[in-house]
Amino acid sequence: MSATEQPNKPGKRATVHDIAAAAGVSRGTVSRVLNGGYVSVTARTAIERAIREVGYVPNTAARNLVMQRSQAVGFIVLEPHTLFLEDPNIGGILLGANTTLSDADYQMVNLVVDSERDTARITRYLSGGFVDGAIIVSARSHDPIIQVVGSLALPSAFVGHPRDLRPEIPYVGIDNMTSTEEITRRLLATGRRRVGMIAAAVDRDSGADRLAGFRRALGPLFDESLVAEVPLYDFACGAKGMRTLLEREPRIDGVFAASDAVAAGAVEALREAGRTVPGDVGVVGFDDSSWATRTRPHLSTVHQPAADIGAHAADMVLRQLRGEEIPQGGLLLPSPVVWRDSA
C-alpha cells in the first residue's frame, strides 16, 4: 500500500486534504464533488474510491455553519412535563413529525414549556438560531411563543389554532367543534337525558371548541351545572371531574369527556361510585388514543389522526425552509366518530 493509500489514523477525522492526496487530485476538485459540482467521470470515480479508503465523514456542523442552518427543527409542547409523557396523542403527533423530518435529513429537538422560566429559556434558544424552524403544540391564546416565532419570522407550524394566531403562520388540526357535536348527538340518541361534560383545557382552542360543540349538540337541554371544568387532558382530571358531576347531579346518565384520558378517569370514578358503564352512565371520549382500548368497556370516541397531524405540520415547516409558498390559513384533517361499547 502506498503512502497515499494509507487509511486515516484512528481518532483523526479525515479531511478534504486526505481525500485529495489519496485520489491524486486537487482539493478544489474534491470540493466540487462533495458539493454536487461537475468533474470528469475519471476524477469522480477516483474521489469516491478515496472517500471510502480514508473513511471520510462530512462535517455537517461546519457546512451548516457556513449555510447558517442548524438542520434542526424544534418540537415545542406547551404542556406540563407529566402530560407530555402520559398523553399518547402528543406522542403520536411527535412521531409523525419526526418521521417526516428524518426523511428530509432534519433532526427534531424536543422542547417542553411548563413554566414562565421555560418560556424565557426557550425564547432565548429560538432567538439564538439553534433551530431552523418550529412545530408548536398546545399553544394558548396570547401565548408568548406566538409572538416570538412571529417576530423572528421563524418558519413554523402550529398544531391547533389559537385565536390570536398570526394569519401568515400555518396550522394543522381537526374540526373539534363539529366532531364533538356529532359524538354528543350519538350519545343523546341512545336515550340519555341528563348528559354532562368534563371540559378540559378550555383555555386552548381545542378545549374551548369541544365545549362549544357540546353546547351546540344539546341545544335547549344544555345545563351549565352539568359542565365540570378541569385544567388538563389527563386521567386524574377526568376522575375529579366525574366526581364533581355526580355530586351535582346523582341522576346523570351520560358524559362527554374532552379526551380519552379524561374519559378513562371518569369511568374509574363511576366504578368507584358503584355505577356501571354503559348500563347506568354512557361515556364517550375524544382522540381514539390507546386509552380508548385500554379502558373497559372500550371507549366510543372521536378519531384524531395524530401521526398525520404531526407529519403535515413538519411538512409545512420544511416547505417554508425550501422557500415554497404556503397557503395562508390552516389544514383540517378528517376526525370521524368511532363507536364502541362505552355508550
Rank of each mutant, 00 (worst) to 15 (best):
L333K: 10
Y38K: 14
D315R: 15
F235K: 04
A199L: 05
S102P: 01
F84W: 11
R319E: 11
L218R: 01
A3H: 14
G285W: 07
L152H: 07
E268Y: 06
D308Q: 15
P80L: 07
V39F: 03
T301M: 08
A228R: 00
A263T: 01
D234F: 04
L101G: 08
A157C: 15
K12M: 13
V149C: 06
V131D: 04
P231H: 06
P305D: 04
A157D: 03
R192C: 05
E229V: 13
V131N: 04
A62S: 13
V230I: 12
P220Q: 09
Y171F: 15
R63P: 01
A269D: 02
R251V: 03
L34Q: 04
V33Y: 03
E48V: 13
S225L: 06
G329S: 10
A120G: 11
D114N: 15
P220T: 12
L101Y: 08
V195H: 02
I174T: 13
G24F: 13
M67Y: 04
F222E: 02
V54M: 05
V77H: 02
G173Y: 08
S26E: 08
E324R: 13
E79A: 15
A258C: 07
V202H: 00
D175V: 03
G92H: 03
L270D: 00
R124S: 14
V281F: 03
A208D: 13
L165F: 08
P167V: 09
A153M: 10
Y56T: 02
H298S: 14
G329Y: 10
I198K: 00
Y106F: 15
R248M: 06
L187N: 01
